[in-house]
């Protein structure tokens, strides 16, 4: 657990009031609205929420790889001083890999099935001029060693199908970290992996971020996992950040009704089935007019004020922000 954040620390990734829309045939989908988040060096930040809450869209926008149908309508993203939204594609291409890189879910489908893993990692090094033809193999093997792949020399020539899911995810991590980026975004890195493998992969990500003092964003729908590995957690719902704070604050005293419900819905070992409760309703349709608070349709604490005035993030305790008119 990190000590209290330094007030003057300069965030590596700084997303301010970001709004993103997707223009589709059936209307404009307001995927993100007024999303702000900061990630410091050496910090692991979790983004938690149901599917469709805008976790991945935030990450993709930060990397500058948002789908062409998506449009940023407001806000700014700064990555180590670079204005991501205004930068040219050439600059972004250098940025991806050297300053920031991303691990995707389902490693098997993200890797090229007909090229050896060594070559795929080599491509990244080659693209960023980190290696020449003579030392390429050596550098790749070094990258394989950092992600603790046994027998890296032999694994260089292996194809993805020859490896287990956990090994493929290690390859993805090796690829992402090959050029020592300052920011790592892991988008559901352990979906589809076994619990034991999940624990090993998450330990690896945590150890590497600590070693290299990387800023790390962990996107997950698993609150319990975020609590284990993150310093700070951001909870998203329907394109809004509803609550953010240190893992400890968030778990000991959730202030947004959605966070509390999410925690109640997660089986946490022990207890009985009566202790867990589902969250009524589903995400609102993000097309068309939406109330200021997008959770209001599912909220038990909903009152007239929730529909009348715009949401403003309240700081309920130091570094603990809640986007709710009537926090718990």
């Amino acid at each position: 657990m990190k000590e209290k954040r330094m007030p003057d620390a300069f965030p590596l990734l700084d997303i301010k009031n970001l709004s993103v829309e997707f223009r589709t045939r059936s209307g404009v989908v307001k995927a993100l609205e007024n999303v702000s988040l900061e990630v410091l060096r050496g910090e692991i930040v979790g983004i938690v929420g149901e599917s469709g809450s805008g976790k991945s869209v935030s990450a993709l926008t930060a990397m500058g790889i948002l789908d062409p149908a998506g449009h940023v309508t407001a806000g700014s993203i700064s990555l180590g001083g670079l204005d991501v939204l205004g930068a040219s594609e050439a600059v972004l291409q250098t940025m991806r890999g050297q300053q920031a890189s991303m691990i995707f879910q389902s490693p098997r489908t993200s890797l090229n099935p007909i090229r050896t893993v060594g070559k795929q990692i080599g491509d990244v090094l080659h693209r960023h001029n980190m290696a020449n033809r003579q030392n390429l193999r050596e550098m790749v093997i070094k990258a394989l060693k950092t992600v603790r792949i046994p027998d890296p020399d032999r694994r260089f020539d292996a194809y993805p199908f020859e490896m287990s899911g956990g090994m493929c995810q290690r390859i993805m991590i090796a690829m992402a970290l090959a050029c020592s980026p300052e920011l790592l975004i892991a988008d559901e890195p352990t979906t589809g992996l076994d619990v034991t493998t999940q624990a090993a992969i998450m330990d690896l990500i945590r150890d590497l971020s600590r070693e290299r003092n990387m800023a790390t964003v962990l996107i997950t729908h698993d609150l319990a996992m975020a609590a284990d590995y993150c310093d700070r957690i951001i909870v998203m719902h329907a394109g809004h950040v509803v609550e953010s704070g240190t893992s400890r604050d968030l778990f000991l005293s959730p202030r947004h009704p959605y966070t509390a419900k999410l925690m109640k819905a997660t089986p946490n070992g022990g207890g009985s089935l009566d202790d867990i409760a589902s969250i009524p309703g589903g995400l609102p349709d993000l097309r068309g007019e939406l109330p200021p608070c997008r959770f209001s349709g599912r909220c038990e604490r909903h009152e007239a004020i929730c529909d009348s005035s715009a949401l403003i993030a309240k700081e309920v305790s130091p570094d603990h922000f809640v986007n709710c008119q009537r926090p718990l």
């Binding site: 619990v195 034991t196 624990a199 330990d203 319990a224 996992m225 609590a227 284990d228 997660t266």
Partner: peptide, 23 residues
Amino acid sequence: QALTAAIPGHNKDDASKFRLEGD
């Protein structure tokens, strides 16, 4: 024991002692 120690949310300090290596 390794399986139960790997359940997220059970992050006792000793959990990482029971991590399994290899396949």
